[in-house]
Design a protein around this nucleic acid. Structure first.
Lengths: 150, 150
DNA sequence: ATTAGTTGATACCCAGAAATATCAACTTTC
DNA sequence: GAAAGTTGATATTTCTGGGTATCAACTAAT
């Protein structure tokens, strides 16, 4: 017998397996990544590996595309509206020079953030990326920062 | 000679003229309305009339669709993220029962708001509708309500 | 070192969203 | 009151975004 640790954050699925579990093709998964919708782990040999959390995020994205009929650029725009500055608590100086703070076309995690508190962070582990993959939670965050009890 | 008052809010263009000025067809304009992207004025005889502001809003919508490649449902979702409660300053009781406050699929002005402060308002004149037709201003509003100097 | 799977890149396909056309009934204009 | 324009509704067309197939070069496993 062996002990199995179930950690939804641990990357375990190679791209082919992930694609099969989601019912889509491998190039589609690569496309989502290129568009900045997901940030999969990579092995030392530069191969993608997906965690259970990654799959859940992807299912959410697929629902947005197939059920809610939101285009990929639409999703990117919505992600760009996440008030990341409130999540990472960056300074006013950071915000002034941050490309993500200005953008309303691409998610913050698709930028590199030179000279900000995000500079050396791994966006993949950032709450902005992990917690706000669906519209409901994004709107809830906006409610929260406006000082409202939801 | 006659005095001409230029008021960008006054509805003057019938639908055919508006369509021509925008370079699109009449059914398309009706479609945008049915989708909840615009709220044109109507005459007593139920005919649509568009103001200069309406045209500007429509140009913005067209850019989102044609240049930014955001689908109509994407635009609706983005509009639904506008923190309207902060603009109209509705009460906690209002928010509790407000469909728009909950939704993240349709703009608030596509709901009727029974028993709230918005109930008897004309959404067409509401700042939520008039001021936040583009992503840039929406993100600016989110920044503002999080207490940030933009 | 051979087999299986991956990489990035390019070329291709097609469902369906976006836009248009068309209709009879109605409104406005002159 | 006749002509021009509009209404809502439905049917039809256009076109491209989302997805796939395929490739040679690379990585991983046994």
């Amino acid at each position: 017998m062996m002990e199995i640790t179930l950690d939804t954050k641990t990357p375990i699925y190679p791209i082919r397996t992930a694609a099969q579990l989601l019912g889509i093709s491998v190039p589609t998964l690569r496309m989502y990544e290129k568009e900045g919708l997901i940030i999969p782990h990579k092995t030392d040999g530069n191969q993608r590996i997906y965690s259970e959390d990654d799959l859940e995020r992807l299912r959410c994205i697929r629902r947005a595309i197939n059920e809610s009929k939101i285009s990929i650029n639409g999703i990117k725009t919505i992600y760009s509206l996440i008030p990341c500055w409130e999540v990472v608590k960056c300074s006013e100086e950071d915000r002034k020079i941050c490309n993500a703070f200005q953008s309303h076309a691409q998610p913050c995690w698709t930028f590199n953030h030179p000279n900000t508190t995000c500079e050396n962070r791994d966006c993949r582990d950032c709450e902005v990326y992990t917690e706000y993959s669906q519209c409901g939670s994004i709107k809830d965050l906006i409610k929260k920062i406006s000082g409202i009890a939801t």
